[in-house]
Amino acid sequence: MIPYLRLLRTHQWLKNLMLFFPAFLSGAIMQPGMMQRMWLPFAAFCLASSATYVFNDLVDAGSDRLHPVKRGRPVASGDISLPAASLFALLLAAVGIGCGLMAQGDFWRYLVAYFVINVCYSLRLKALPIVDIFCIASGFVLRLQAGGAASGVMVSEWLFLSVFLLSLFLSTGKRLCEKGGLGDSAGEHRKSLESYPPGFLDLAMAMTGAAVLVTYTMYALSRHALIYTVPLCTFGLLRYTMRVKRGGGGDPTDALLKDLPLFVTGGLWAVLVALAIYR
């Protein structure tokens, strides 16, 4: 049972909280029935995302066995056989998409798009430089749009741009940390890493981080009371950058859960937003 729970990567479900952002930031999350309306889409994304993680583990089983960290994953280590993992992935995908079809609005379209992009990413796109970063970033954007569709809340242009650029920033940081941690063998574990010239990922991370700060500031100005969250956004961007450059790990979920200053910053941001919108 424990290997299957590890296969799900339940800690990555934290990303699916993005589904609640449109309703939360619009002030609609407290409307009668809104939370009940959002739990089914949340469950659907959790199951579908876990299905893509299992599929990725199946595709990468051979290379993962040579990776210093990933070799401990259930499929790579042999704790779960390839046929059992394949059946598990199909079951997760079927139930997840089934739940998505029962959700309101066009939610299911974004869920299917997320699933298709991630399958293509595992099969081929992750080997293409820049394209691999955009594929990772698309997951956050599709969650945001899916949350808007499920809640019936329109996602503003500035919020869309902020999430899109933040996703690119985090994805670039993840690749930069991988490239630095694996050193000369980076290309053997992830083909796209050998295609990034020296300094490119650093520059891309600085560029997208600056763009995030601009777009989020514009979003905060459009909402007036949220302007006081901009300093927290700035601190969070700088803290994540320092973590990556120190080799502390670039995975966004791990960074939030394991880095206390980032965790506190995220909590304070949520509290300030809630006070500004709902008080």
Rank of each mutant, 00 (worst) to 15 (best):
W269V: 05
S26F: 06
A149D: 09
S192Q: 12
Y53K: 04
R190Y: 15
V153R: 04
Y278V: 12
K15D: 13
Y121A: 05
F263S: 13
N118V: 07
R124F: 15
G209S: 11
G72C: 05
T234A: 15
P231L: 12
M242P: 00
D202P: 00
F164L: 15
G33L: 12
L193N: 08
L40C: 08
G236V: 06
W13T: 01
L165E: 04
G248W: 12
A146F: 06
F21N: 00
S192N: 14
S77Y: 01
T217S: 08
A127F: 06
L213Q: 10
G139M: 03
K174S: 08
L161V: 08
R109P: 00
R73A: 11
L176T: 01
W39F: 15
R143H: 08
L268F: 09
H189W: 12
M1A: 14
F55K: 01
D64N: 04
G249L: 13
L25D: 02
V214M: 13
V244N: 08
F140L: 08
G139I: 00
L257E: 02
Q104K: 14
V75Q: 03
L17C: 11
H224G: 00
Q12A: 14
L221W: 11
L92Q: 07
A186D: 09
F42C: 05
F164I: 00
N118I: 07
A270N: 03
V59E: 11
V116H: 05
F24N: 02
R175N: 03
